[in-house]
Write a protein that binds this DNA or RNA. Structure first.
Length: 786
DNA sequence: GCGCCCCTCATACCC
DNA sequence: ACGGGTATGAGGGGCGCG
């Protein structure tokens, strides 16, 4: 029989040296099913050395069979390697776990240049070769078998054919479960070897909400949690920081209490897998913390901040209980209910985030081909790479090995000097997907690069400006083919969106976002020394063409009489003139073969002397603030708020004097302690371990105090600190914000090193000085403006 | 011993 | 563990001054 199958998770088991693939998913009738496939054999390639006779080499390899008993087959095949037609020897192997070892062994033979693709894991191999995609539909010929594993599914099938992907956009009705835990420690970071879990809050997308609270026994809490999961039988389990926090904690506690955390569909415990994600067999475990990176606007990546940013319904009267306060709330019977409410709301926030980004996560998994639970933890480079590996396989291209290389920097984009001051009516023109289009236009790709020692091919070459690298014009290279199809796919999706609504629209939108993310990441990937397809001239030539493009654009604009006030990488800012802009856009299309589009028009815009920092007023009254303190996470809110207000007054009311008055008021408010304490917190990231710092810095000293108090800190943690009064350097005066009070605050620091620099960055453009802002709030002498 | 200059380290931003 | 280009503050050493 034939079934429809939507793929959720994949794993494999070895049974007496024979592997079986286990596909977990949902069929066309919403049954949860397990499909077992015993017919897939893994393999690797051997590439012969230049000038070696393939027949002879084949015999040499075959002679090794007795030493490598689990080899199944050795044959020669035609492939391409960096675009060049290549004969390779394909070695299939009964036990996929021996692939690396066997490839290693055979690579040592004389005549073998190298092994290839032995680092593709068995389950990945299965997905790639069958073009099987996570979160996508397939057809499989199957036969129902007994559920001998006791798996938690409606049906178990044995595959009679390999799966075939089919076009079908709908999602099955998924069961989603979210959870969060609260741990109790008397002081400092809770440690799973020592401190219990006291609360677990769960919620489902069917509207159920439960809370398991430790009254007398933690065992009961864990048992109830396990029971709830098994009963609800979720397809997707969501949480926040669960990969590094909740799951390892739960596992350690369960072990300690003699419990087994059997929450997967195979009657086993969750386990840590590739890229540091926790795998729950048969389900997809998704940790939204892994997606928080994608939202640069969220500076401190707490659950609350992410939920806020994503517009998750604001919870009324929310009391945030900070880690440091948990013991106090737990111990006090009157305050405990607040902690319980906080925990329940955390889980609600998680469910809110799920509605906001799970569609995207599923489309990303589907596009790049990484299982849903991997795709979040995989870094951008690996997401792009998996997409490329799949495309390469379709094109008969061999996947290069990942190799270590030394790092040498290369030249990137140009940034134009801004014209300082205020400008009226400034239009921003952007090149659409500049780097991808440059690569397509010039056929820039690892497989089209012509080494200087090679002769020019008959089809001719494109020569990059400045750097002189050459790329054959024909045939279309790997990147050109991949990028063109991505750009086309996005266009098609956007077209379809125009006639769609509801769920269809949501899926299409999530999909076009995923396509955009991968397209935009492709240039960064090609310049990454860790990339399998890294060829430095590819990245260098791309940026060289980019520089030529933007500089040519400036030239053309000036020839047309457009005043260019700024530009960065793929954009120019010009005094608005619709006619001339239209003409410019036409000329660029004709002369450069690229598309430039008016992105927006600022009614007024202010530049300082610095690049990459400006603020513009949009027609709808909103401010676009770029690069300035307002958008930086490492300035106290008090400084950011003042600067934002200054910009607003300057841009909307054209009144630096009024801004100055506002700043003076703010300074006086601070002196009177009228500014909330949390507005004084400065956040900075720990980018290395505490011992590795060469100089003493405020956030590092604050971090040391936290460590001393029993808080465990890890790389990438954001340290919130305030500056207190006292002698010595700044770093000596920095204290974690929860270890100081308002009375400790060094008000003068906040005035002279936070408020004043932020305000003067803007007001300095209008000859306003520190003295003007420090004068008493009464009536300042600003006669010079009158 | 102090202030000033200049360089380096550290972080976070822009595209 | 995707790229390079840029701004900025604080630390810290060197130097001249008195």
């Amino acid at each position: 029989m034939k079934i429809l199958f939507w793929l959720l998770d994949i794993n494999y088991e070895l049974i007496n040296d024979t592997p079986e693939i286990r596909l977990w998913g949902i069929d066309g009738e919403e049954n949860r099913v397990l499909v077992i496939d015993r017919n897939f054999t893994s393999y690797f390639y051997l590439i012969p050395q230049e000038g070696v006779d393939l027949k002879t080499l084949l015999d040499t390899v075959k002679a090794q069979r007795s030493k490598l008993p689990l080899i199944r087959d050795i044959e020669t095949v035609d492939r391409r390697y960096f675009g060049k037609p290549t004969k390779a020897i394909k070695v299939t192997c009964k036990n996929p776990d021996l692939i690396s070892k066997y490839a290693n062994e055979l690579s040592k033979l004389g005549g073998v240049k190298s092994g290839l693709e032995e680092d593709v894991r068995y389950s990945s191999r299965y997905l790639v070769d069958n073009e099987m995609v996570p979160c996508g539909w397939h057809q499989i010929e199957v036969e129902e078998i007994k559920n001998e594993l006791g798996a938690q599914v409606d049906k178990v099938y044995l595959a009679k054919s390999f799966p075939k992907p089919i076009e079908k956009n709908e999602l099955p009705k998924l069961r989603i479960l979210g959870f969060s835990i609260v741990c109790y420690s008397k002081s400092g970071t809770s440690k799973p070897e020592r401190d219990p879990i006291v609360v677990i809050s769960v919620a489902t997308n069917k509207g159920e909400e439960k809370q398991f609270v430790s009254v007398d026994s933690e065992v009961k809490v864990l048992e109830a949690f396990i029971k709830f999961i098994v009963k609800f039988d979720p397809d997707i389990i969501v949480g926040y920081a669960t990969n590094r926090q909740d799951w390892p904690y739960l596992l350690t506690r369960a072990k300690k209490l003699g419990l087994s955390l059997k929450v997967d569909r195979a009657k086993a415990e969750p386990h840590t897998s590739l890229y540091g994600h926790v795998s729950v067999t048969g389900r997809a475990n998704v940790d939204f913390y892994d997606f928080a990176e994608d939202f640069a606007e969220v500076k401190v990546k707490t659950l609350e901040n992410l939920a806020d940013f994503l517009g998750v319904k604001k919870l009324m009267d929310r009391t945030i209980v900070e880690d440091i306060e948990i013991p106090a709330y737990w111990e006090d019977p009157k305050k405990r209910s607040i902690l319980l409410k906080y925990s329940a709301e955390n889980t609600q926030s998680i469910m809110g985030i799920a509605s906001a980004i799970l569609d995207f996560a599923m489309q990303l998994a589907n596009l790049v081909g990484l299982p849903l639970d991997h795709v979040g933890t995989a870094a951008v480079g690996f997401r792009v790479e998996w997409y490329l590996i799949r495309q390469a396989h379709k094109l008969g291209e061999l996947t290069p090995k990942r190799i270590e290389r030394p790092y040498f920097p290369y030249a990137g984009a140009v940034v134009l000097e801004p014209k300082p001051g205020i400008h009226e009516e400034v239009a921003v023109l952007d090149f659409k997907a500049m780097y991808p289009n440059i690569m397509i236009m010039n056929n820039v790709s690892p497989d089209t690069y012509i080494d200087p020692r090679e002769p020019t091919p008959p089809s001719g070459v494109n020569v990059a400006p400045e750097v002189g690298y050459k790329f054959r014009k024909e045939p279309p290279g790997f990147y050109k083919r991949v990028l063109s199809s991505l750009i086309k796919a996005r266009g098609d999706l956007q077209k379809k969106m125009k006639t769609s609504s509801g769920m269809d629209y949501r899926i299409l939108d999530a999909r076009q976002k995923a396509v955009k993310v991968i397209t935009n990441a492709s240039y960064g990937y090609c310049g990454w020394i860790g990339a399998r397809w890294y060829i430095k001239p590819v990245a260098e030539a791309t940026t060289a063409w980019g520089r030529a493009t933007i500089l040519n654009t400036v030239k053309l604009a000036r020839q047309l009489g457009l005043e260019v006030v700024y530009g960065d990488t793929d954009s120019i800012f010009v005094k608005h003139d619709q006619k001339k802009i239209k003409e410019l856009s036409k000329q660029i299309g004709e002369e450069l073969g690229l598309e430039i589009k008016p992105d927006k028009v600022y009614m007024r815009i202010i530049f300082t002397e610095a690049k990459k920092r400006y603020a513009g007023l949009l027609p709808d009254g909103r401010l676009d603030i770029v690069g300035l303190e307002v958008v930086r996470g490492d300035w106290a809110a008090i400084a950011k708020n003042v600067q934002e207000k200054v910009l607003e007054i300057v841009l909307k009311e054209n009144s630096p004097e009024k801004s100055a008055t506002y700043v003076r008021q703010c300074i006086s408010d601070l002196r009177n302690k009228q500014v909330p304490y949390r507005d004084l917190i400065i956040w900075k990231t720990l980018t290395k371990s505490l011992e590795e710092y060469e100089v003493r810095a405020p956030h590092v000293e604050a971090a040391k105090l936290l460590t001393k108090a029993g808080w465990e800190l890890t790389l990438g943690d954001k340290i919130g600190f305030v500056i207190t009064t006292g002698p010595g350097k700044l770093y000596a005066k920095a204290k974690p914000y929860m270890m100081a009070t308002y009375d400790d605050i060094d008000v003068d620091y906040y005035i002279s090193n936070q408020i004043l620099p932020a305000a003067l960055r803007i007001l300095g453009m209008f000859q306003i000085t520190e003295g003007d802002l420090m004068e008493k709030a009464s009536q300042p002498s600003l006669a010079k403006f009158l």
